[in-house]
Design a protein around this nucleic acid. Sequence first.
DNA 1: GTAGCGTTAACTTCGCAAAA
DNA 2: TTTTGCGAAGTTAACGCTAC
Length: 309
Amino acid sequence: MTASSCEFLHGLFIFRLGMKTSPSARDIEAAQRVSLWLDGHDAITTAAEAKKFLKSVSIALRYGATEGLPLASIYAAVHVPRESAAKNRETQKEREQDRELLRRAIELTNGLMAYREGIEINVIADRLVLAHRDLLPAIYFLRRRGRRLDDTANLSAEAKRALALLKQKLIATAGEVRSHLRLERGERHDPVVEALSELQREMLLDRGPSDVPKTGIPYLSRDGYPYRIFHEVHRDLVAKAGKLTVKAAADLVIGRYLKGAVYASPRKLASMFKLFLSAEEIDESVERLSAKKAVKLDRVGRTEVVVSR
DNA sequence: GTAGCGTTAACTTCGCAAAA
DNA sequence: TTTTGCGAAGTTAACGCTAC
């Protein structure tokens, strides 16, 4: 499909959604998949295309898309699904192709992170996502809510120790943190991974781009993933966050997300953004966006949804 | 031979809320 | 009251290579 035919298709869907009658579930789901680049686009192959993709969807899963989670996915954007495809009937060649595409997705992701076009975060939908730099100050502001950077009262003991180490070293991998803090992995859980995830969730740590092995599993970097102090790496974005209000930040996040996703139920919005927005704040944001005619409330079948206009 | 590297998909179970 | 759908939480297997 060419770029122009894709834009035409997207425009057609948006036109249909603008009709007075409520959209059918099939129409609106198809519009969402096109808008999230899950359908109707050529596979992205270059850094420029990856940049355009992230700008257009604002938030993208680092890895595969999941049924029921209305988010774009970098892996899906580089990977046009095959027609055949029962997982257990894949050929060796198809498996190799898939691995190559995963490698390309990770390389493009690393490029976006290296140029700080996208920042990896783990505060949306319980998944690792890349947020576009335009959206990052709002997410940072809503997640931190003015807490001081030295306010570690709510952190676990392991996270406090890991943060202290990172402040000293400025950059470290999970393996380095493990050996410095002498925290052994348990059979069921890894205290270092948990502590680093906790710090990333608090937006105190940033995980940067890593090398992609030429052979083997692309996301298993030989040298580990580099963890850095968030506000040191992203000083400009943190400064921008300081100038926001809750209302402005919430409207930016909800508005930009819906522009990419076309629609979502309030319940889904609350579930995806629960780490930095309450259900009430989301409702209020939807009201404001609705008053500005940026979104409208509608129904798809029995479900109430917020639709981007 | 084994641990370490990082993450996902798939699955199960349970609970809750909305609609019929 | 029952049915249905959704979300949350937890578990497990899988992946390929390297260093010890």
